[in-house]
């Protein structure tokens, strides 16, 4: 987008009640993640579940509170690309560490 001299800022028409609803959803998910962590034992799947719930919460915050829902593709690109790089960092670091073969037995 280049200079167009627009003076009008696009406003997002969110109302208060939708924010309240989002907050309640976040609270519910938090309670849910704590409960599943304490009460349910599904071994290593617990961390997976916790991360899925955290990601749902994070997406809700980003989409609604941070208005990502209303943003253009460019903002989406720069919101997601760092996550991809983070994935690369974690993935290759783990891959490297756990495929090492000890030289001395």
């Amino acid at each position: 987008m280049s200079i167009e001299n627009r003076d009008h800022i696009e406003e997002h028409h969110t109302n208060i009640w939708s924010y309240v609803f989002v907050l309640l959803a976040l609270f519910t998910l938090t309670a849910f993640t704590v409960l599943t962590a304490i009460k349910v034992d599904i071994g290593s799947l617990n961390i997976v579940l916790a991360m899925i719930i955290a990601s749902v919460k994070a997406s809700i915050v980003a989409l609604f509170f941070m208005h990502l829902k209303f943003e253009d593709k460019l903002t989406w690109l720069y919101a997601l690309y760092p996550l991809f790089l983070l994935f690369l960092l974690i993935f290759f670091t783990l891959m490297e560490t756990f495929t090492r073969v000890p030289v001395l037995k």
Partner: peptide, 18 residues
């Protein structure tokens, strides 16, 4: 450039696969 960093570390004891 984000996919290649391990080539600085070939002799530092990293995994051969990587």
């Amino acid at each position: 450039s984000f996919f290649v960093w391990l080539h600085h570390m070939f002799v530092s004891g990293i995994s051969e696969t990587a």
